[in-house]
Structure formats: C-alpha cells, structure tokens
Design a protein around this nucleic acid. Structure first.
Lengths: 203, 203
DNA sequence: TACAAAAAAGCACGGTCGTACTAATATAAA
DNA sequence: TTTATATTAGTACGACCGTGCTTTTTTGTA
C-alpha cells in the first residue's frame, strides 16, 4: 500500500523526464523499466495499459508545472509583478535543465495534434485550462491599472504562448544563444500593446 | 532509370504527407509501402536505410515549401507587399489542408530537438537557411522605406516564426477558430514595432 | 512470528520494426 | 526479339513493442 505509492511516484517522475525526450508515444515501458531497474511486467502492473500511463504522465507533469511555475507566480502581487513572475518562471521551465528534453507539453502538443483519443483529449483539457489561467493573470493586470481596460486578454494569452514556443524552438533546435533574449524583447513588445500608460517612444 | 525516378518521386510525396502526421521517426517503411501498394522491400531498395529516406523526405518537403510559399512571395514587389505575401503564404502552408498533418518541419523540429545525428543536423541547416531567408525579406522592407532603418531583422524573423508556431498550435491542437485571426493581429503588432512611420495610435 | 495481501518478476504471445539476401519481373537498349 | 540491367517482390532475421498469465518475493499487520 505504502510501497506501491512511492514506486509509482518515482516511476512517473522518470516517465515525465523520458517522455519529454521521446514523446508520449515513444515512451516505452521496457525502456522506462530498465531505467528504474524494474522488470517490464513489474512496472506495467502499476498501470494496466500504456494509455493509463500516458494519462498519468500528463497529470504528473501538470502537477510539476503548477508547483514550479504557477504557484510561485501567484505569490507575486497581482498585476504587473505577477505577469512578469509568470513569464520568468515559465521561461525557466521551458529552457532550463529542469527537464532535459524540453517541455513535455510542447512535445505532446505537436505529437498528438492530429491524433484522436483520450490522451489527446486530456492534453487539450489541460492546455485549455492553462490558457484560461494566463487570461486570469492578465486580468489582474487590468484590475491593477497596469493594462488598458480594453486589453484583449485572449490575445495576450495566445501571444504569450507563441513567444514561449518560439523560444523553445530557438533554444532547443537552433541552439540560438539569443533566443531567450528575443523572447524577453517580444514579451516587452507584447506588454506595450496592452499597457495603460504608453512607454516613451524610441527616437 | 526513368521508372525508378518517378516511383521515387511519388514515394517521397506520400512520405512527406505521412511524416507530417507521424513524425520522421514514426514514419515506418512498412506503412508507407502499404499506402503505395508496394512491397516493403521494393520500397526499401529505393533508399538503403531509413535515415536516407528521412533525409530525402526533408529535402522533398523543403522543395515543396519553396515552391508553395517562397517562390510566390518573392514574386511580390520588394518591401511591405513581399513581407505580407510571405506571411499569407506561410499561414496557408501551416494551417490549410495542403498537408493533413500540419507542417512537417514543426513536427520534426520538436521531435529532433534533443536528438543527435545527420537528420537533425540537416533539419537545423534547412531551418537556419529559412531564418536567413526571412531576414532578407524583411531587409527589403527597410530598403523600401517601409521599415525603420534600425529595425532588428533577426528579431523580426524570430518573432514571425513564433507567431506561426502559436497559430499552428492553436489551429491544430486546440482547434481554436480564432487562432488564425490572432496570428494576423500579432503580425500587425510585430510590423508596428518596426514600421518607419508609426500608425495612428488607438484611443 | 505467521499469514494474507500487495508488489515485483518471469515468461510467452502476436505484431511491427529496420534491414539483409535472393528470386522474379519489368524495362530500355541492342 | 534478345539481352543486360533496373526495379520490384519474397522471405527471413533479430530486436523491441504492449500485454496477458503465473509464480515468486516483499510488505504490512494480526
């Protein structure tokens, strides 16, 4: 009872890491078992299908994300500080060595975008929730007077995601050392489009 | 001699389509052969390894991209028109039913970002070339007086890519009907950051 | 310490994978 | 039409895949 829970926990921990490199489909039970010095069947018995494993891997990654990105961000004061904290934490999540294979959700989003089934559905649900969470954070920016009252929250949420995707791509595929800086610049430009009090214009 | 070329061409055609759904790794020789009513070994003999197939698939997709996106765009007059033409063609490429599985390069970029080997290297080369091509198109915007002389061309190229990635994600995973519109808005905002003569500010 | 239950391992299965090697067939030039 | 060659098919291989079933080992408790 106790033992089962703890091994399952460490299985999922490794699985999240492995899946971020191989994708959810490429995540193989045999390889995962070897990495944990478990037998294939011993590991398999914790889940009863690969699909169940994949679903729980998504949830484990989501918990991790909440803990490492969202929770610290919402501890910052509402408004600009929280928006910037969210951005910085998220940037760290995607580019740092927290997960050696990059963001699992990015990999899964591309991998599953034209498949069907429960795993895709679950991913979509998580991603839509995350979209709305970003909207709420930007909403505090309006309430605090930092952003214009008519700022398009959905657009901000969408564009922020684009910026992170671009950064992920630049850092991980192109290994562009300037990718992170470019993401910051794009982020500032994005804030400028929605700021209540315009910045002093260049030149 | 003649026959071989033509079958190889149609193999690569199907392979590009299939790989856009399954990824370059998931692209299996058996499945590809079945789809073309060929024997597995018959198909295999055209390439002599899966890696060779993958490399040629990348090249085939690049040719297609050049033909459908780049060539029409550079036929537009230098400057704003060409920049906008490039954007529109690219948008079409990524979201339309040209390839049922979305953009192969997007899929490959995520799939290969933490692998090593010739396939990844080749993809990176293609993507860096494409980055520089965008830079050159934006450059015509400066030369024509549409963009500021000090516009950051690399940043524009990077940000434009981010916008396309965000759109791809919104359209394909979230199936957000507004994703394409949001990409257009983001694109206009991007141009605004680099325009020589600022637009009349809202409100 | 004994014992029931949980956890892990062992083993086997049908499939698909990439890739040899060989045989048959279609093609193009003589 | 014959013939050399290019193209396809046939077959087999070892490896790994997910998953069921049975046995062994470990664990928590009475």
């Amino acid at each position: 009872m106790r033992k089962g829970e703890s091994t399952k926990h460490s299985i999922l921990d490794q699985a999240v890491q492995l899946a971020s490199q191989t994708g959810l489909e490429g995540l193989s039970i045999g390889a995962l078992a070897t990495r944990l010095s478990l037998s294939k069947s011993g590991l398999f018995s914790h889940f009863r299908s690969k699909q169940a494993l994949q679903l729980q891997v998504l949830d484990a990654a989501a918990r991790r994300f909440t803990e490492l990105v969202l929770r610290p961000a919402v501890q910052a004061p509402r408004g600009e500080a929280r928006i910037r904290a969210l951005f910085e934490r998220w940037l760290l999540w995607g580019t740092s060595s927290i997960s050696k294979g990059g963001c699992l959700f990015v990999a899964a989003s591309i991998e599953l975008d034209d498949k069907t089934g429960k795993v895709r559905d679950h991913l979509v649900k998580l991603q839509k929730d995350w979209f709305q969470t970003r909207v709420r954070v930007f909403q505090t920016g309006i309430e605090s007077g930092y952003l214009r009252k008519d700022a398009d929250l959905d657009q901000l949420s969408h564009d922020l995601f684009s910026i992170m995707l671009g950064c992920h791509y630049g850092v991980r595929l192109l290994k562009d050392p300037k990718a992170e800086m470019r993401a910051r610049i794009a982020f500032e430009n994005l804030l400028d489009t929605a700021r209540a009090t315009p910045r002093p214009q260049k030149v």
